[in-house]
Design a protein around this nucleic acid. Sequence first.
DNA 1: GGCAAATAATTCAACCGTTGAACAAATCAG
DNA 2: CTGATTTGTTCAACGGTTGAATTATTTGCC
Lengths: 392, 392
Amino acid sequence: MSDLPVRQGSLREHNLGLVLRQVASAPRPPSRADIAAATSLTRATVSALVDDLITGRLLAEVDPAPRAGAGRPAAGLVLAANGPAGLGLEINIDYLAACVVDLAGAVRHHRVRRADQRPRRPDEVLGELAELAATARDRAEREGVEVAGAAVAVPGLVAAGGLVRLAPNLGWRDVDVPARLGLDGLTVTVDNEANLAALGELHTGPPGPTSFLYVSGEIGIGAGIVLNGALYRGARGWSGELGHVAVRPDGPTCRCGAQGCLEQYAGQEAILRAAGTADTEELMRRAEDGDPATHEALTNAGTALGVAVAGVVNVLDLDTVVLGGVYAPLSSWLCPPVEAEVERRVLTAAWSPVGVRRSLLGADAASVGAAGAVVREIRDHPARWLSRALLP
Amino acid sequence: MSDLPVRQGSLREHNLGLVLRQVASAPRPPSRADIAAATSLTRATVSALVDDLITGRLLAEVDPAPRAGAGRPAAGLVLAANGPAGLGLEINIDYLAACVVDLAGAVRHHRVRRADQRPRRPDEVLGELAELAATARDRAEREGVEVAGAAVAVPGLVAAGGLVRLAPNLGWRDVDVPARLGLDGLTVTVDNEANLAALGELHTGPPGPTSFLYVSGEIGIGAGIVLNGALYRGARGWSGELGHVAVRPDGPTCRCGAQGCLEQYAGQEAILRAAGTADTEELMRRAEDGDPATHEALTNAGTALGVAVAGVVNVLDLDTVVLGGVYAPLSSWLCPPVEAEVERRVLTAAWSPVGVRRSLLGADAASVGAAGAVVREIRDHPARWLSRALLP
DNA sequence: GGCAAATAATTCAACCGTTGAACAAATCAG
DNA sequence: CTGATTTGTTCAACGGTTGAATTATTTGCC
């Protein structure tokens, strides 16, 4: 219940977004008349709105598709490929990533630099990330797309203004990411890695479920929660701490101080320890070779994960669970036990099944999701972009 | 992202609601000028909107409050006490209830009829509830308020259209409540008891937290989830099954088939069994007398509840937990162990505390919340009511 | 007691965005 | 070439908000 007054201009803002989303979700380039029919706006209104969107470089006309029957050929409308684009950045334990996604959702640039970030100081890390960002922006603008904003994915808790309150596995505390990145003139938002990955998953591929849990397995275990097509961030923005849900209340003590946290059973380190190896690549190989000890370790982790996930699904009534991060490549072994626990423990599972599947985007989910979040913001509120785009 | 077109009339609809909510949330009757200042609408616009709302019997003018200084006295605006009202009904294991709440939120009528509903057939129960509803409606209309709709609180899972899919403790399955109630001409909605109680809690007293978990302890344990001031119902409307969250994955078998569900540790029957009594009144007496066995039973139940609640808070980042149902009168003994577990297990609790408190409305939460939900619907979408009110 | 100042509410022309109908543009079928 | 058909634009009308001017009603002061 947004308690803001609504003036005449708000009509325009809303309907601009409506038309834009209509183009975005259409299976083939729609005509102005198609949009009018789909939205129940008038053709006159749609024409006026489309004119604004074309001059604002958000839409473009394409050659008329060959039509059957009589009538003037329709001009197809598509999201502009040379309009504004989003810059997505990711800081993770063992790599940095940058990518550019255009308004149509295409990944125009993507680069990952692998290195353990834990021994480095925040300034070093952010300096290198700024370099990655600069080259990504440069490449993109040489292709004719203008980077309109940036989003940074971080494995930690983020407070208002982009302050990283705590990133335990990086050893960061109270780091002001936007200030130290220094991307001049670009608005920079910072968000939890699981949140942005969940958004990436939400907007990738054909329209899927609009309420789901994205579980991001890394050193810690985070979760992004999408409810009714919108990311839920929590009362203070710190939702998704799935790794510290209790699986056994009197289990081993976690580094957070509590006992029996999920992280102690299904965190990356716990799985490696149980499987008797120190390397995820090696774990994958052993699992593929059918090593029994590895399979047992993965089944136990999946069972613990399933207990925690079932609790969340019981409370939130979600129909889909997506496994991402390091869980994605391991999903063949993790999904079955997770599914079994969910099936057993979710009250409503009997008559409405809960799907458990691996992430579609895999390791790129967070950076692509971050860039996608920037363009999605423009797509949902085109008026802001239009008023800014007309100044220069 | 509501994908509906916005026409001129939508402006009016939104701004009517805006003005109405402004009056509702003001500490004292505001003038038209006050509303204009608060909403940044023009005084001219506010006047026009208020005129519509007064002729629609949603607002009323009161005598000007004595003002300091010069100037024409302002006419105060209040929510109409003789306008539309909501009828709230509740079916619970051991009582039926009906109440009427007017637009201003005042409880104009309230009646509870205690009797064990478990041995009775749904038709009998709904027949008696219809009687209660009829007298409530009669009383209300004799006072000059028009009952505009009804909402029914049920301890079970409700599907679209008011079909009670499953109410395990009543022994109901697939009962079409609106059809069998037969309140002619009244739109009847049905919802889970915990959901409506959570709404009641949200709108009672001074504006409180907008994201919280309402825990309803009865024979089963349900939860109503309020996120950002709105009830979250889940992907299919079956959220809040807190009672079947696993506390100990290998604990005793629950009647749902799974093991170690919270209900087995903190359900009403489990508490009574552990305390060695069969009656809640007796339990209360023993607790107040300081009986050690009773205290231990309550502490153990509170600890189990705390483990489950901490998991939910970790995932959803809520700042408040409200204990309702039978937990409300027991809250003196339940809150401390719940708080202790939340403090220990919620990662962010260290720097942003989570409040645990008893329900303000107590046993009336669900019926009052149901009636409140009806008037809230009118308050949030006054245009619908206005267009209907002008017909007769 | 009368008058100026102050505040509340209403009136009215102007403006903005959508509507609906009329019209121009572009193609196909015969 | 002509009529049918569909797309897209133009334009007067309409609904809703704005802002300034006007009316209404009180207090304070001489």
